[in-house]
Each structure stands twice: as C-alpha cells, then as structure tokens.
C-alpha cells in the first residue's frame, strides 16, 4: 500500500515544475563551478556553503507547502481503506525521496561527465550524504509543523524561524557562549551544543572532509580526539541519524492522531 501511494506521489512530484527547478539549480551550479573552478574537490568545497544553507531552507519550505497543499488529498485518501501509517510513509517518502534524488542527481551528474578523480568523488559523496540527511530531516520537520499547525501562515512562518534559528542564530549563541565563558573548559559543552543542531552537524561532517587541516589547529585533547580520529565522523553520523528519527517520529505520531 505504501508503495502504491508512493508510486503516484513520485509520479506527481517528478512532473512538478519546482522539482525540475530544484534539479536544475544544483546541476547548473555544480556545472558552472566545474567550468570556473576546475577540479571536483574545489567544486565540492564551494558547494558546501550552498548545501548547508539552501537545502534546509528549501526542504522545510517545500515540505510545508507540499503538505499544506496535500491536505484535501490526504483527507480523500483516508476515506478510502488506507491506514494512516501507510499514508504517512507514502507522503513522507513521496517528497523526501524526490528531493534527495534531485539534489544528488543535480550534484553528481557534473562529476560524472567531468570524470572527477576518486578524491573528488569522495568529497562529492560526503556532500551528497550530508545534503540528503539534511533534506530528510528538514522535510520531516516541515511535516511535523504542517501537521501541528492547521494555519499555514503560522506553519510556514515557524518553518522559516526554525530554519533561521538553526542556520544563523544557534551559531551566534555558541559564539556568545564561547566568548562569555572563555576561561572555562568548554570543549565538551561546545561540541555537544554543535551536535544538537543538524546544520552544525552537517557542517562538521563536511569540515572533517574539507577542512581537516584547519580543524587540526584546535588545541585541547577533546577536540584532538574528536577531529583527529574516526570518532568525530562516527559521532556526527550517529547524531545525524538520531536527528533524523526525532522529527520523523514526532510527525508520524502526530499523523496517527491528527484530526483532518
């Protein structure tokens, strides 16, 4: 049943103009970077900033819009013998998968036809992994918000605020904390704070890939342990996975008891 719903969802989403625009955005950007920047490693580095800003924002906004627009459709399906959990996964995967595919395809295609080196591919795959995780997390957040707030202005507004909070304000708070308590041993608290923000997590994963040389400039045993060993990668990926399950579970549970 989930696959049935998913099948028609995918058919719908892949025909929509915005998903085509989304693919083209990443495709053109990566291609242009290849043309001007040269090697795939540089391209991936440049794409990093885009990925960390564009993906959370577009995923949460598109996700919320999509779900608000699908309200009547979901009601309709629920009047057929469809179970709620089936509909939820159908709808969730029906948006998250196309977004991931659009992003991954848009980024990787130029790597393919530019015959990037193995090292560049490794960076590109890390980029795609991180971007995909962020996509799914922010689509899940959007779904939760859209299910929680029937008023779409409120839902979309909150989506924007959450996005802004995670992309900018949160890091401002971290910097503030670092400044205010600079005389205290803050290594662990700062690391933990970063792990609590999915965008920071994604950023750290990518830093491990692209800026390890700079990160190694951090003094302190905790940082050395974290960034200098596979520990950092493991913890970041694990935290990202935890981050993934939280909004998905919240959205799912909300969906089961929601009044349409």
């Amino acid at each position: 049943m989930i696959l049935k719903i998913l099948k028609y969802q995918l058919r719908d989403v892949f025909r929509s103009r915005w998903i085509i625009a989304y693919v083209l955005f990443f495709l053109v950007l990566t291609d242009v970077l290849f043309r001007f920047g040269g090697d795939g490693l540089r391209v991936a580095t440049s794409m990093m900033n885009i990925v960390l800003i564009v993906i959370p924002l577009s995923s949460i906004i598109l996700g919320a819009f999509y779900l608000y627009n699908a309200r009547e459709y979901m009601e309709l399906l629920l009047c057929h013998p469809v179970k709620r959990h089936q509909l939820f996964w159908g709808m969730f995967l029906g948006l998250a998968l196309p977004l991931v595919a659009a992003f991954a395809g848009g980024v990787m295609l130029p790597y393919l036809y530019n015959a990037a080196s193995a090292e560049a591919w490794q960076s590109a795959l890390m980029l795609v992994f991180t971007g995909s995780m962020l996509t799914v997390i922010f689509v899940a957040l959007a779904y939760y918000l859209a299910l929680r707030f029937d008023d779409r202005i409120k839902g979309l507004g909150l989506a924007l605020v959450i996005c802004l909070f995670f992309t900018i304000i949160y890091d401002g708070i971290i910097l503030f904390v670092i400044y205010m308590f600079s005389s205290y041993p803050l290594e662990k608290p700062v690391l933990v704070m970063s792990l609590l923000n999915p965008i920071d997590l994604g950023r750290i994963l990518l830093l491990l890939q692209f800026d390890i040389s700079a990160l190694m400039g951090l003094t302190g045993a905790v940082f050395r342990e974290f960034f200098g060993t596979p520990l950092g990668m493991t913890v970041s990926v694990a935290s990202l996975l935890i981050w993934l399950t939280v909004p998905v579970t919240a959205g799912f549970r909300r969906f089961l008891v929601k009044d349409f």
């Binding site: 058919r11 719908d12 989403v13 929509s16 627009n69 699908a70 009547e72 309709l76």
Partner: peptide, 8 residues
C-alpha cells in the same frame, strides 16, 4: 473541495 495530486 476535491484536490488530487496536481500533475496527475
């Protein structure tokens, strides 16, 4: 008010 997936 019926709304089905727009592009189907």
């Amino acid at each position: 008010l019926a709304r089905y997936p727009e592009n189907l």
